[in-house]
């Protein structure tokens, strides 16, 4: 019995890897949406800064936020076309929904980038630390590297728009 399962698993894995070329997931980029850490602001903050020249995009979103869900494909496509860009989704969903709703949702949407969940109720204490001009409404996006940084309380309509903003920010 055990052997049968193992054989089945191996053949499925083989199948998966031979199909790898068509698959969207870049080998080695199989990501950890199975591991969604829950952070408070203190734990999240280091993800909002970098010493590297690499472009970082951090998007604050939630499943319950319709305009956020609408722009997810823009970030997904952008991340796919720019594997050199570090993309992080900060979910403001509820920790108890991670297994039952968030993970299935991310799978359905094909999100393979890093996802963390921010659970820090006293949002008035940390919104200004991220950006004093942010009202607290989402979606909210930060584009940055070690030198430049810009903030968007705004829904990206398409990849071109996101590309333009990345170029504007990083090449500034």
């Amino acid at each position: 019995m055990k052997k049968t399962v193992l054989t089945l698993l191996t053949s499925l894995l083989f199948l998966a890897f031979t199909k790898g070329h068509n698959s969207k997931a870049v080998p080695g980029e199989v990501n950890c949406i199975d591991d969604i850490p829950v952070y408070d602001f203190g734990a999240l903050e280091p993800l909002l800064y970098t010493d590297s020249e690499k472009t970082h995009i951090v998007n604050f979103w939630a499943m319950w936020c319709a305009p956020c869900v609408k722009e997810l494909p823009v970030f997904k496509e952008y991340a796919k076309n720019h594997p050199d860009v570090e993309m992080v989704f900060v979910s403001l969903d509820f920790p108890e929904d991670i297994e039952t709703k968030l993970k299935p949702f991310l799978k359905k949407k094909g999100i393979t980038s890093k996802v963390v969940l921010l659970d820090d109720p006293d949002s008035n204490s940390w919104i200004d630390k991220i950006n004093p001009n942010w009202s607290g409404a989402i979606p909210f996006t930060i584009i940055f590297n070690h030198k430049n940084r810009s903030f968007y309380e705004h829904t990206f309509e398409n990849i071109q728009e996101l590309q333009n903003e990345v170029t504007k920010t990083i090449n500034n």
Binding site: P67, E77, N81, N133, W134, S135, A137, F151, E153, H154, T155, F156, E157, N158, I159, Q160, E161, Q163, N164
Partner: peptide, 22 residues
Amino acid sequence: PNGERKGPPGGGHSPVQTKTLE
């Protein structure tokens, strides 16, 4: 893909609040 559907810069037709707090 790649933004064939080009919107105005800044997404002027966005149905949501696009202005910053300022």
